[in-house]
């Protein structure tokens, strides 16, 4: 427990003090929420007239994706490339202790992100719909799915390649994820593709849980659960501790 606490503290400090990480996990979601609420250039879903109703859940989904997949993914790839993961294998922390500490850091960063976006949303006139249980379940599944993707990339790519690949995947999922503009605005083939991606499933669950209300589509839950099972399983199979 002592080793885990020391590592978790270190991981949280590194996550919350790295400029590039803060840019992608906090600054970009905040800029998107603030910017696209004020500058009304992007379309909204049919029947929705308040921008924060769509953008607050959407940027929250973006924030969860950025933390699990990009920020922690890159950090893990750097640790692997610099032999940190290998070295931790011969400490009392062990590899499992390292993973628990990483998960703790991801959850802490997400709480900070979501709190900032929640408060900013309220400031912008957003009234949460309030299905917090579905939101929390969705956030946990999304964290597992995106962290799994991040670890899969981090465990197979060198840190230099990881930065490029994870940012490219981030942009693609942002574009196809229904986070800052609705998927219905996309051409049909892309909209169909988006439905099987974890980004769209997450934003849809968040949108219904905190935005417009109504029943969350079962298909979104199924897609997110499949990603939450498959991505960590693939990461566990292909992850290399030593670069």
């Amino acid at each position: 427990m002592k080793a885990y606490l020391a590592q978790a503290k270190s991981e949280i400090r590194l996550s919350l003090t790295q400029g590039e990480s803060l840019l992608v996990t906090i600054l970009i979601p905040v800029i998107f929420l603030l910017g696209f609420t004020v500058v009304k250039v992007l379309p909204l879903p049919n029947g929705v007239h308040s921008r924060p109703v769509f953008l607050v859940p959407g940027t929250m989904a973006l924030a969860v994706m950025a933390t699990g997949m990009v920020s922690q993914g890159i950090a893990t790839a750097v640790d692997r490339t610099y032999g940190v993961l290998k070295r931790l294998g011969v400490t009392p922390l062990g590899k499992s202790g390292f993973l628990y500490a990483k998960i703790t850091a991801i959850l802490v960063v997400e709480i900070v992100q979501l709190l900032i976006l929640f408060l900013l949303g309220l400031f912008l006139g957003w009234h949460p719909n309030g299905n917090y249980f579905a939101f929390i379940v969705g956030a946990i599944l999304a964290t597992v799915a995106f962290s799994g993707i991040g670890l899969l990339l981090a465990g197979t790519l060198r840190s230099e390649a990881m930065i490029g690949v994870s940012n490219a995947v981030y942009l693609i999922l942002l574009f196809l994820g229904g986070m800052i503009f609705p998927v219905s605005s996309l051409p049909t083939p892309l909209a169909d593709l988006a439905k099987i991606l974890p980004a769209q499933a997450t934003s849809e669950i968040f949108y219904h849980a905190l935005g417009v209300g109504g029943i969350i589509p079962t298909s979104a839950w199924i897609v997110l659960i499949i990603w939450a099972v498959a991505a960590p399983a693939l990461a566990a199979k292909f992850f290399k501790w030593d670069s």
Partner: peptide, 29 residues
């Protein structure tokens, strides 16, 4: 890992960590 100390060839520390932080972290294990 609880009983041995290991020095690998040229690595094992996060490049952003300072000696002070790395030592405090490892002491915490």
């Amino acid at each position: 890992g609880k009983k041995i100390g290991v020095m690998l060839q040229g690595g094992g520390v996060n490049p952003r960590m300072t000696p002070s932080q790395a030592l405090a972290l490892f002491a915490g294990y």
